[in-house]
Write a protein that binds this DNA or RNA. Structure first.
Lengths: 205, 205
DNA sequence: GTCTATACCCTGATAGAC
DNA sequence: GTCTATCAGGGTATAGAC
C-alpha cells in the first residue's frame, strides 16, 4: 500500500506540474483538460481519478502554489536591525525570492484575473502572502517609536503596495516599454521617505 | 444613408453595452457569443456584421472603455496650488471619479487577467491611464524645487502605486474581509511622507 | 490506477430568408 | 442589416477493458 500511495502522490504531482504550466499560461476558462493531460503526460481519466473536476484541480493547484511558495518568505528576525537595513532587506527578499521567480507574475495575474470566480483563492492569497510582510513591518514600527510612525499599517501598505504596483505596471502590463523606472529608484525613495536617509545604495547590497 | 448610419451606431453601442456586462463578469475565454447576443438583445449574426470576430469585439470594447473613461481625468491645472492640496485633490479624483465607478474594478481585473493574451490592450491601459496622473505630478515636482524631491518619477510611482495596490488588495482580492484599512489613512500617510504635514483631514474635504 | 473510446453539450462562425 | 437554422469542432466528464 505504501508503494501504491507513493505512486499516487507521484502521479498527482506530475498532474499538478502539467496543470500549472497550462493554467498559468491560458487562465482557467482558457485551459482544457485535454491540454492538461497532454502537458502532464497522462490520460484524461487519470486526472479525474485524482481530482473531482476542473474546478477541484484548479483550486488544489492555486492553493498549493500559494502556501508552498510563501511559507518560507519573510522569516527574518526584525529585532536589533536599524530601520534602513530592515526595509532594504524586505525589499530584497520580495524582489529576489518572490518577483524573480518565474511563476510569481503569472500566479499573481491568475489570482487577480480569476478573483471573481474564485474569491476564496484570492482571500487565501492576500492572507498568506500580503499580510505576512505587513505584520512583520508593523511590529517593528511599534517597537521603534523613535521613527515616529503615526500609522504603521498605512505605512506598511505604502511600502509593499508601491513595490507590488511596480511589478504590475512594469512587468505585467508592459509599462517598461514606455516608462523606464528601476526597482532601485523606487526602493531608495521609499526608504528616503520613511526613515529619512538619502538612500543611494542598491537594494541588493 | 444618415439614418442607416445612425441605426448602425445605435446597434453597435447596444452590442458593446451587452458585451461589456458579460466580458467584465466572465473574462474573455469565459464569455460566449451566444451570451453576448442574449445580453445585448440582438442575434449572433448581428454581432458578426458589426465586428469581425470575438477577438475584434473584445478589443473594440476594452479600447473604447479605456479611452472614453479616462480622457477627462486628471485635467486639473496644477499651478498655484500648494503641494498638500494637489496631492489630496489627485487622490480625490482617483477615488471618486475612477475607483467609485462600478466598472473600474472589473475593467482593471480583466486588463490584468488578459494581459498575456492581449498585451497591446495592457500597454494602451498603462499609457492612457497610469501615465497621465504620473506626468502631471512629475511636472509639478519639477516646478517646485522647494519640496526637494530627488526622484519625481519614483515618488509619483509611490503615490499612485500605493493607491492602486490598495484597490487591488482591498476591493479586488477581498482584503477588507481580514484587514481593515481606509483610503483616508493611506492618503494621509502618503501626504505626510511626501510634503511632511500631519495630514489629518479627509481626502474628500 | 490507468488507458482508449465515447456520450453529449456548447462553442465560434456561417448560410440563406426577408 | 437583421433574423432563424445549422455546421463542424472542441469542451467536460464518463464507461468499460485491463
Amino acid at each position: 500500500m505504501s508503494v501504491t500511495s507513493e505512486r499516487q502522490t507521484a502521479k498527482r504531482a506530475q498532474i499538478l506540474k502539467g496543470a500549472m504550466a497550462v493554467f498559468l499560461r491560458l487562465g482557467y476558462a482558457g485551459t482544457s483538460m485535454d491540454r492538461v493531460a497532454t502537458e502532464a503526460g497522462v490520460s484524461k481519466q487519470t486526472i479525474y481519478s485524482h481530482f473531482q473536476d476542473k474546478e477541484g484541480l484548479f483550486r488544489s493547484l492555486i492553493e498549493g502554489e500559494t502556501l508552498a511558495r510563501f511559507e518560507a518568505v519573510f522569516q527574518l528576525d526584525p529585532h536589533q536591525v536599524d530601520p534602513e537595513t530592515l526595509l532594504r532587506r524586505l525589499a530584497q527578499i520580495y524582489f529576489t525570492q518572490v518577483v524573480d521567480n518565474s511563476q510569481y507574475v503569472p500566479l499573481l495575474r491568475i489570482v487577480i484575473g480569476e478573483s471573481e470566480r474564485f474569491p476564496e483563492l484570492a482571500r487565501l492569497f492576500t492572507e498568506t502572502v500580503a499580510q505576512r510582510g505587513k505584520k512583520l513591518l508593523c511590529e517593528y514600527f511599534r517597537h521603534h517609536p523613535e521613527l515616529s510612525i503615526r500609522d504603521p499599517e498605512a505605512i506598511a501598505q505604502i511600502f509593499f503596495g508601491s513595490m507590488v504596483s511596480w511589478v504590475i505596471l512594469q512587468k505585467m502590463l508592459y509599462g517598461e516599454a514606455s516608462f523606464d523606472l528601476s526597482r532601485d529608484r523606487v526602493v531608495n525613495q521609499l526608504i528616503d521617505l520613511i526613515v529619512g536617509h538619502s538612500g543611494n545604495r542598491s537594494y541588493s547590497d
